[in-house]
């Protein structure tokens, strides 16, 4: 197998995730897109770990998974709070910071 096939797959996944983050208005869907981005990164970590035959890649992929779990927990809490306050999780309505 080539290293590049994994890297390109990850790059594609990453870009799809970026597209999702940019396009989605629903907070939940944005979080899901962020998960795609994180997973793309994880593929890279493990692929490079396999290339260099080093366990570090896997270890950091595990760490990323743990951090992602934390991120989802907090993100969901925020989305729920937003829903409770505004009865909507439409991010385009959360624009109090506009100039």
């Amino acid at each position: 197998m080539l290293l590049n096939q994994f890297l390109l797959l990850a790059a594609a996944l990453f870009c799809i995730g970026v597209y999702g983050v940019l396009v989605r208005k629903n907070g939940m869907l944005v979080l899901m897109s962020v998960e795609l981005i994180l997973n793309a990164v994880n593929i890279n970590l493990v692929a490079f770990g396999a290339l260099t035959d080093d366990v570090g890649g896997e270890v950091f992929a595990l760490f990323t998974i743990a951090v992602a779990a934390a991120e989802v927990g907090i993100g969901l809490a925020i989305v729920l709070l937003m829903y409770r306050n505004r009865r909507s999780i439409d991010l385009s309505e959360a624009d109090l910071m506009k100039g």
Binding site: L13, E35, I65
Partner: peptide, 29 residues
Amino acid sequence: VAANFILLGSEFVAVTQVLVYIGAVVVLF
């Protein structure tokens, strides 16, 4: 992604992926 991890020989990460992402994160979603 988990399947990719298995292809890359990282079974542990793959199973963790299933446990955490599919078993917990998506369920939370």
